[in-house]
Design a protein around this nucleic acid. Structure first.
Lengths: 328, 328
DNA sequence: TTGTACGCGTTATCAA
DNA sequence: TTGATAACGCGTACAA
C-alpha cells in the first residue's frame, strides 16, 4: 500500500501538498495539483483511515446496540442504521447486548478505545450515570432509557389504544392482553393503553392480562392458559407480533378458529406476520424509518455537534389482515 | 483520557517500561512493575486501540458480509460470528451487500483502509481475481465462491436427497420442488439432489419444478401455479424455509389441507418454521455452528497465519414437524 | 533491568 | 503557493 510519502516523492512535492490536494483545503497551484492527482492515480493511493483516526480522534464508525439480532424486530432496524451509516461514509458495528449491563459497558469501553464516534442503542438498562460518563453522541431507540438522552420511538400508548379499539370496532366483547416484560418501558406503555381502553368496561377482569417475554414460546403458553381459563375471550391484543404468532398457534392447538371465534392483533409489523396462517393483523411501526432517523441524528450530532436533546415520536398504523374480522 | 506518557510520568519510569508491563514482554523489576500497575490503576489508563492499530497494521476487527440481514437466515449467522469475535476480543462489523458486486468491493476497500483483519463472506459474486487481490484472511460461508478460498458449508446435495426421501418414506407419490435462484450454488445443489431422487421415477415430470427467489412471495406464487396445474402433487420440497412458508400459505389459499392432502418440507431450520401453522418440517442447518466455525477459522488464520485452504462441511438434520405426516 | 529514540501515516501549524 | 515539522499514542530496536 502506497503512503502519502510515496505520492509526495513521485509528484516531487511535500506530503503537506499532497494532503492539501486530498482534503481540498489550502491553496495549491493547478499544475502541481495535476501532478499530485496523477501520482495518486498511478500509485493507487488511498489515505490510511487508521492514521487519520489517530490524528483526529475520530474513526468514522458508529455502533448499534441491540438486545439480540436474532429477534426479528431488530434486523430491519440494523439494516436502516447500516444503510445510513454507509451513505454518510461511516462504518457500522453491531453489538448484541443480551440486555446485560455488563456486556453493554464492555462494548462501550471497547468501542471508545477504538474512537467510535457515536451510538444508537436499544436498551432498558443503561443508567443515567453511565450516560453522563459517555460524551459521545448517542441516541436511544425503541425504548427510552432516561431523560438525558435523545430518542426515537413510536407512540406506544396511543398505538395500543388503537389496537384495542380495532378489536372493539369489529365486535369483540371480551378482550385480553398478553403483555411484554414489565421492565421494558414500551411494554408498560402498551399495557397502560390497553387498560385505559378496557378498565371501565363492565366485563373487564384482571385475569384477562397475561405476561410474556416478547417471544413466541412464552406467549403461546400464556395464551393457552388464558384461553382455557377464560373461554369467553373473543379478542386478544398481543404486545408484539412474535407473541401474536404464539397466540395464533395456541388458538390452533385449542381448536379455536381465528378469526371466526377469536380475533388477534399484534404490534410491530415485522414481516413474519405476513407468513402466518392466518396472516396477522398488527399495529405497524415504521421500523426502518426509526433506525434511519436515529442514525441520521447521531451522525448529524457527530458532525455538527448539536448537543440538544430531542425526542422524536413516529406514528404506528393499523394493518388489517386475516387474524381479525368483523363479527356477524 | 490518559496516555502511556501520563502513566510513565506518574510511575517515574519510561514509556517503554509501561509498555512492557502492559504487554508482559521483556524483563521488568517486580517493584517497578508494582508502581506501574498502580499508576495505571490510578489514572484509569487503557491503551488506545487506534494507535496500536496504526503501529501494528492490525485492527482487531473482522467483518461479515451478508446479502441482507433482513433475511431471517442471516441474523443467527451474524450472532454466531459476533459472539466468537467478541470472545476473542475482536470488533464485529456487519455489511449488507445486497448481492451487489459493486457494494462488495466498496466495503472491501473501505474496510481494508481501516486495517480490518479478516472477513467472513456470504457471496455468490466475488470473483477469483478479487480474491487474489485481497491478502487478508477470508472464509466463505453458505455458498462457496471459488476454489481459492476456505469455506464452511453444509452438504446441500445429500441434505436435499434426505428431504425427498423423507417425503417418499411417508408415502408421497408425486413430489414437486420449488428451487432457489439458479445463480446460487446451494440452490443448484439442492435441485440436483432432488433430481437424483426423482428423475427415474415413472411419474416424474419437469413441470414439478418451479423456481423462486428464496423468499416468501415468489414461492407462494410459484406454488399456487404449480398446485393448480398439477393437482396430483402430494409433496413439496421447498428450497428453503421461507419458500416453505410460501407453499404453506399457497396451500391454505387453495384449500389444500396440510399435511393430510399435501406434505411440505423446507430447508434451513430458521426459527420462523416453528411459528407457522402447521409448523414446518425441515432440514435443519447448524447455522450458529457454521458462523462460529467460520469466525473461528478467520481469527485463527489471522493470529497463526495458516494459509492452507480448508473446506468444512457440516451435516444437516431432518426435523419432522406438523407439515409432513405419513399417509394412511 | 531500564531508557532513548524512531516509526507507523496523517493532518495542521508556521514559516518561507 | 509550498515545505518542514510537530503532533496523535503506541511498540520496539538498540544502547546503556
Amino acid at each position: 500500500m502506497a503512503t502519502i510519502r510515496d505520492v509526495a516523492k513521485l509528484a516531487d512535492v511535500s506530503t503537506a501538498t499532497v494532503s492539501r490536494v486530498i482534503n481540498r483545503n489550502g491553496y495549491v497551484n493547478a499544475e502541481t495539483k495535476r501532478r499530485v492527482t496523477e501520482a495518486i492515480e498511478q500509485l493507487n493511493y488511498v489515505p490510511n483511515d487508521v492514521a487519520r483516526s489517530l490524528f483526529k480522534g475520530r474513526s468514522k464508525m458508529i455502533a448499534l446496540f441491540v438486545p439480540d439480532i436474532t429477534n426479528p424486530f431488530f434486523p430491519e432496524l440494523a439494516r436502516a442504521v447500516e444503510d445510513v451509516a454507509n451513505q454518510r461514509d461511516y462504518t457500522f458495528v453491531l453489538c448484541n447486548t443480551d440486555n446485560d449491563p455488563v456486556k453493554e459497558s464492555a462494548y462501550l469501553n471497547a468501542l471508545q478505545q477504538k474512537s467510535a464516534d457515536g451510538f444508537v442503542i436499544v436498551s432498558s438498562s443503561i443508567s443515567e450515570e453511565q450516560l453522563e460518563e459517555i460524551n459521545v453522541p448517542m441516541v436511544a431507540v425503541d425504548r427510552i432509557t432516561g431523560r438525558s438522552i435523545s430518542s426515537v420511538t413510536v407512540n406506544n400508548y396511543s398505538g395500543s389504544r388503537q389496537a384495542v379499539q380495532h378489536l372493539k370496532s369489529i365486535g369483540c366483547k371480551r378482550i385480553a392482553h398478553i403483555s411484554g416484560p414489565e421492565h421494558t418501558d414500551n411494554a408498560v406503555l402498551r399495557l397502560r393503553g390497553y387498560l385505559d381502553e378496557v378498565m371501565y368496561e363492565d366485563w373487564f377482569n384482571s385475569n384477562y392480562i397475561a405476561v410474556g417475554e416478547y417471544n413466541f414460546d412464552t406467549a403461546r403458553e400464556a395464551a393457552i392458559e388464558l384461553l382455557r381459563d377464560c373461554p369467553e375471550v373473543d379478542g386478544v391484543f398481543a404486545g408484539n407480533d412474535l407473541m401474536g404468532a404464539g397466540v395464533l398457534n395456541a388458538a390452533a392447538a385449542l381448536g379455536r378458529r381465528v378469526p371466526d371465534d377469536l380475533s388477534v392483533i399484534g404490534f410491530d409489523g415485522i414481516s413474519i406476520g405476513k407468513t402466518l396462517t392466518p396472516t396477522l393483523t398488527t399495529m405497524v411501526q415504521p421500523i426502518y424509518e426509526i433506525g434511519a432517523k436515529a442514525a441520521d441524528m447521531v451522525i448529524t450530532q457527530i458532525e455538527n455537534g448539536a448537543p440538544a436533546i430531542t425526542s422524536e415520536e413516529l406514528p404506528v398504523q393499523l394493518m388489517e389482515r386475516q387474524s381479525s374480522r368483523r363479527k356477524e
